[in-house]
């Protein structure tokens, strides 16, 4: 399935609104903490907003992989279109 370009834009717009900056300055390569200055609480607030925009639920075990804007975009692209429900936890993953 080809990536939906609006997903990236929506995520960067949500992030830009949260950070009060121009969406054009938010790049997919940027690290949420190191480049954009989001602390762990701010990341949680951002994901709360993204859950709302895309009608998703992001389970706790998926949070660890979401460290750059690009990770979030790709994650949402994968999830979008599927029903908004808890994804099955990966059995080998430690909590």
């Amino acid at each position: 399935m080809a990536p939906d370009p609006t997903i990236s834009l929506k995520i960067r717009t949500a992030l830009a609104e949260y950070l009060k900056r121009d969406p054009a300055t938010v790049m997919t390569t940027q690290h949420l903490r190191d480049d954009l200055g989001l602390d762990s609480m701010a990341v949680i607030e951002l994901l709360y907003r993204i859950e709302e925009v895309f009608n998703l639920q992001i389970p706790d075990q998926d949070l660890v992989g979401l460290t750059t804007v690009g990770h979030v975009v790709r994650y949402v692209e994968k999830r979008v279109g599927k029903p908004a429900k808890q994804s099955k936890p990966k059995s080998q993953k430690k909590s």
Binding site: M41, I44, Y48, E51
Partner: peptide, 10 residues
């Protein structure tokens, strides 16, 4: 329950 704001408790 998942839509309760993360800042609710603080």
């Amino acid at each position: 329950p998942h839509r309760v704001h993360p800042n609710f408790i603080p």
